[in-house]
Design a binder for these strands. Structure first.
Lengths: 141, 141
DNA sequence: ACAACTGTAACTGTTAATATTACAGTAACC
DNA sequence: GGTTACTGTAATATTAACAGTTACAGTTGT
């Protein structure tokens, strides 16, 4: 899985957790364990897709603009990592003379399309709000 | 997804299709579009897991040793590519002072374990025999 | 003996991913 | 209005993963 997906989810959960719902790229980066520039890039995507708002300038940063219980991991997956399970490597060749070799790409493709749907369906059932709840549950034990 | 998974599936389908059920690494490699050494490595794993038998020496090669309709993609996935959807990159840090940052790894991990199960379940429903049938269906159209 | 295979390991080249740097643009605050 | 604290974005290392390739020892049929 794409690491940008993880950064996105982690950032959103962090924002959902903060009392004022706001954080700078530097603060998020320290929490996620990566670099502020990377966070800015990822959260730039999230802004373009309507999950966060940003404020530039001093005192600026990122803020959630949706209810955490309405944001599913499937939304984030589609935005940040669509096609992540489908391999970029391809076997066979449609030009080939052999029935197996020439049709494998098409069949394999349909298999991975199904896998993609399956995964999205799973992610559909997990919201940012639930992620935060799970984290709180971890903390208690 | 791991390309070795694809090579494995493709090779097994090819073996299932061949009338005598046998092929050399060179022949398989040409069909898959990769190198014989790579095929030998992958099919070596399949041998160790009981999906094919091999014969060394002249006239040797690989042969299926299970019914194609009994081999599921889930079996191959577990053998060749287990954990392929789980990212190797990790956000957060258990040593951290923040509740979110310190517990994210554990929660993220459980999310991806679930995703893995979901995917395996999907692959469980697809056999090598079905793959071959799908290919035949492609050919007709 | 020879030719045709598998089994493995080592090495190389290429691509993708991550980290890092840099700087222009923007807003708050004194 | 200048300074400070941010985002936005691109460019550039740096690193790790992956596929391709070579090489050779071991095995078997002829």
């Amino acid at each position: 899985m794409n690491s940008e997906f993880i950064i996105a989810v982690h950032s959103l959960v962090l924002l959902a957790h903060k009392p004022d719902g706001m954080a700078s790229s530097e603060e998020i980066a320290a929490n996620v364990c990566t670099h502020p520039a990377r966070v800015r890039k990822v959260l730039g995507f999230l802004r373009k897709n309507g999950y966060v708002t940003t404020r530039e300038g001093s005192g600026g940063g990122y803020r959630l603009c949706q209810d955490p219980s309405d944001m599913t991991l499937a939304d984030i997956y589609r935005t940040m990592a669509a096609g992540a399970v489908t391999p970029n490597w391809c076997s066979g060749n449609p030009e080939m003379d052999c029935m197996v070799g020439s049709n494998m790409q098409e069949v394999m493709n349909s298999v991975f399309c199904g896998a993609e749907r399956q995964l999205e369906q799973y992610f559909q059932g997990i919201t940012i709000g639930q992620m935060l709840s799970r984290i709180k549950a971890c903390q208690k034990t």
